[in-house]
């Protein structure tokens, strides 16, 4: 099994990276850059079933399960959302369903992106986080029941 950094450690890394920025402009510049760098999702995954509801932009999310680990791939037609997704993937991908379900994800608040979690219908980050945790839970239930 491939070892990945504990979730809280990656969260801490991101908090420190954001600590280097003086202004909101710089934060957004960084997030936009992350969004541009996130590989585009293969067209075959851009199906309605993989769309995350509750986003003003279109967001696709796919999850894979292998050897007890969940990996995520995602895409969006909006760059800032894509940048935020990129951070979530960096934090959560490669972990076990339990680790993902219990991930605190306090970094979102610490880097000042809480507003993107607001229930304003237009923001997709909350829907995104929920969907990632749902996938983890689904994999957990599926593989638990397979084991018993």
């Amino acid at each position: 099994m491939k070892t990945v950094k504990p979730i809280v450690e990656t969260e801490q890394e991101i908090i420190e990276e954001f600590g280097l920025f003086d202004s909101w402009d710089e934060k957004y510049e960084y997030i936009i850059d992350l969004g541009k760098k996130l590989p585009t999702l293969d067209e075959e995954y851009k199906q309605d079933e993989n769309r995350v509801r509750g986003c003003q932009s279109t967001v696709w999310l796919v999850a894979f399960y292998h050897d007890g680990q969940v990996t995520f791939k995602a895409d969006s037609d909006a760059v800032i959302v894509k940048g935020l997704i990129s951070m979530l993937i960096r934090v959560l991908s490669g972990h076990s369903p339990d680790e993902i379900i219990n991930a605190p994800l306090g970094f979102i608040d610490s880097i000042g992106m809480t507003s993107h979690l607001a229930q304003t219908r237009s923001n997709g980050l909350l829907a995104m986080v929920r969907q990632m945790k749902h996938y983890a839970l689904a994999f957990k239930l599926k593989h638990q029941s397979a084991a018993t």
Binding site: W24, D25, I32, Q56, S57, D77, A78, V79, V81
Partner: peptide, 20 residues
């Protein structure tokens, strides 16, 4: 350019527009 991205960046300058 996606309208949502522009909306977020404008908000960052204190400018409230509607996107969507």
């Amino acid at each position: 350019v996606h309208p949502q991205d522009v909306g977020i960046l404008l908000d960052n300058r204190g400018v409230a527009v509607r996107t969507g």
